[in-house]
């Protein structure tokens, strides 16, 4: 009898221990699930908050309000130079800090300006600014904004040529200092003014600059300069010929064959041919002159 009784007690104790172990296992499992859930909630919240915050930070661009005067294209991201009715369109993607663009400008500027003055081409500039993210810094964006400020008062072409003639080393980021951009603007007659300076210093066309770069990002072109003649790449080669002043002129003439050239009044033709002809000499003090 007593044996039977003991066995009953033991089995009751075992049952209780088993039950407790089961409960503990269930509690542990529940705790683990809670931790996993908490971790997933942290991750999901971070991602959602991140997307919302970054969306808010990417500046919204409104072509009607934010583009400089005289820009063209669907969303007014392009700066035109030369006659609208010129038979050929040259599209140029340039970054102000890009050394290859400076080489292109130095080698081709005279030819391009001549073709503009002859009414053979219109140039449409995309002022990209990706070197800042590539090398670090803000010089490209500052210069792109300053170019937009110049475009806004009709002096883009001249200031563009001045900037490339004074481009700092790519890795130097001298144009992070906006006063250097303002000091260079003093070479262009009629450009430097209180409103131009506040435009440069206040990054007035910042959202336009971002929108132009965003457009370049999506274009599929991935280096500057990218040069298109009537939509076909013309840099570094066109129909397997290397770009050169003589070749480029021949390409344009071939493309223009049988089409009327734009007629350009002689005064504007002169300004297009040599936009910097009447510029003020550069201040000897460089950037230091800009604080006056």
């Amino acid at each position: 009898m007593s044996n039977k009784n003991d066995g009953g007690k033991r089995s009751a104790r075992e049952r209780m221990q088993e039950e407790r172990a089961k409960q503990e296992a269930a509690a542990r499992k529940k705790r683990q699930l809670t931790v996993i859930l908490a971790a997933l909630v942290v991750i999901a919240a971070a991602v959602v908050i991140g997307i919302v915050v970054q969306n808010g930070r990417s500046s919204s661009y409104d072509a009607a309000k934010d583009a400089p005067a005289g820009t063209v294209g669907n969303t007014r991201l392009l700066i035109p130079v030369g006659a609208t009715n010129a038979p050929s369109t040259v599209t140029i993607y340039e970054d102000p800090r890009c050394p290859a663009c400076e080489q292109f400008e130095t080698g081709m500027k005279t030819t391009m300006n001549q073709l503009l003055a002859q009414g053979k081409i219109q140039i449409q500039y995309h002022i990209a600014s990706f070197i800042d993210r590539h090398d670090g810094g803000t010089g490209s964006k500052n210069a792109a904004n300053a170019l937009a400020c110049a475009q806004n008062v009709g002096l883009f072409h001249n200031y563009h040529d001045v900037l490339y003639a004074n481009q700092p080393q790519e890795t130097e980021d001298a144009w992070a200092d906006k006063s250097i951009l303002i000091s260079l603007a003093k070479q262009v007659p009629g450009l430097d003014s209180p409103s131009f300076e506040s435009c440069v210093n206040g990054n007035t066309f910042g959202s336009w600059v971002t929108a132009v770069q965003s457009d370049f990002d999506k274009s599929g072109y991935n280096s500057t300069p990218t040069v298109l003649l009537n939509g076909t790449s013309a840099y570094p080669t066109y129909n397997s010929q290397d770009i050169s002043p003589a070749n480029f002129t021949a390409w344009v003439d071939a493309a223009n064959k049988g089409k009327p050239l734009a007629s350009i009044p002689s005064a504007s033709a002169e300004a297009l041919a040599s936009p910097t002809a009447h510029n003020n000499p550069p201040a000897s003090g460089g950037a230091s002159a800009s604080h006056s």
Partner: peptide, 16 residues
């Protein structure tokens, strides 16, 4: 954009 904006925050959440 969702991936470009979201991935860095996924990485930061994992870091935390």
């Amino acid at each position: 954009k969702p991936f470009g904006y979201g991935l860095p925050f996924l990485e930061i959440a994992l870091a935390l």
